[in-house]
Design a protein around this nucleic acid. Structure first.
Ligand SMILES: [Mn+2]
Ligand SMILES: [Mn+2]
Ligand SMILES: [Zn+2]
Ligand SMILES: [Zn+2]
Lengths: 141, 141
DNA sequence: GAAGGGGTTTGTATTAATTACAACTTTATT
DNA sequence: AATAAAGTTGTAATTAATACAAACCCCTTC
């Protein structure tokens, strides 16, 4: 990730998404970090830069990106969707103490499943939960 | 699954969950099917049998079961939680046409991941999306 | 440069899943 | 039977997400 603004502009154009100022800012925000933010987090953090920003626009833009395949939804939590500009194969780990969501590499080709021979699989999501190294250290009682 | 009512009763007792009539009915409903119902589905379908049932009770019971590890939450959709009395290792496939959620076997031990050596993993969820065989057949245009 | 049109953004209202909470009921204990 | 503890219920509150119409922006055409 961490695309240049120009590379990002072409990414949107290729998908026939008009690269408006707001969309670029939202996409830049997502592409620049690994934090898998919620729509609300994106809205709150961009409000300083774009004082007229509406939360509906954030949702509209994110839905546009997801439909185009530029962004993936991370549903590791049951109460709110998170977003990820990294659409390459990887897993997500959520720490039950700090709430952070970490990326980790997964060998999708080596993932052995049964009974799906007649299914068409379009998307694979792998979600792990537990405790992260940082929280394990801080929690030496 | 498809436990006898007695086996189910012991399951609850072992976890120090008092086996009330409502809880048994909810647990039986879950254990008897593979459909991964929502809280609302459980509520609607049990209302005939338990006319005084409250939706809050369904949520309370499900949360109790999940905390005790008797039921798992399936967050394959971003808008509502689904529930599963089968807590053994298996994956979930959601068909984007009919919306059905299917179980499938996964070799969790053979799942190769990297960078998690210092993490404590407590839960593993595997969610696939695509089209199921039934919908593929019906859709021969 | 005014007029028009398509796409974008915005604010507000609405929907819907989930939780909070206090009153009420049932079950267990003495 | 009295009392305490746990479970259930109905209503209100919370909150993520969508619906929708008005306002806005940008580009083309006259
Ligand atoms: Mn990620
Ligand atoms: Mn299942
Ligand atoms: Zn942590
Ligand atoms: Zn299907």
């Amino acid at each position: 990730m961490n695309l240049s603004t120009e590379a990002l502009l072409n990414l949107l154009k290729d998908k026939n998404i008009r690269p408006s100022y707001t969309r670029i800012k939202i996409m830049e925000y997502l592409a620049a970090r690994r934090t898998h933010p919620t729509a609300d987090e994106i809205y709150s953090n961009l409000l300083h830069e774009i004082p007229t920003l509406s939360k509906t626009t954030v949702y509209n833009s994110l839905n546009t990106f997801v439909k185009a395949g530029l962004v993936r939804t991370v549903t590791i939590e049951d109460n709110e969707a998170r977003f990820d500009a990294d659409t390459s194969d990887h897993g997500h780990f959520k720490c039950d103490m700090c709430g952070n969501i970490y990326d980790f590499p997964v060998d999708m080709a080596g993932l052995h499943t049964k009974g799906l021979s007649r299914f068409i699989v379009k998307q694979r999501d792998i979600y792990f939960k537990g405790t992260c190294p940082g929280c394990l250290e801080n929690n030496i009682n």
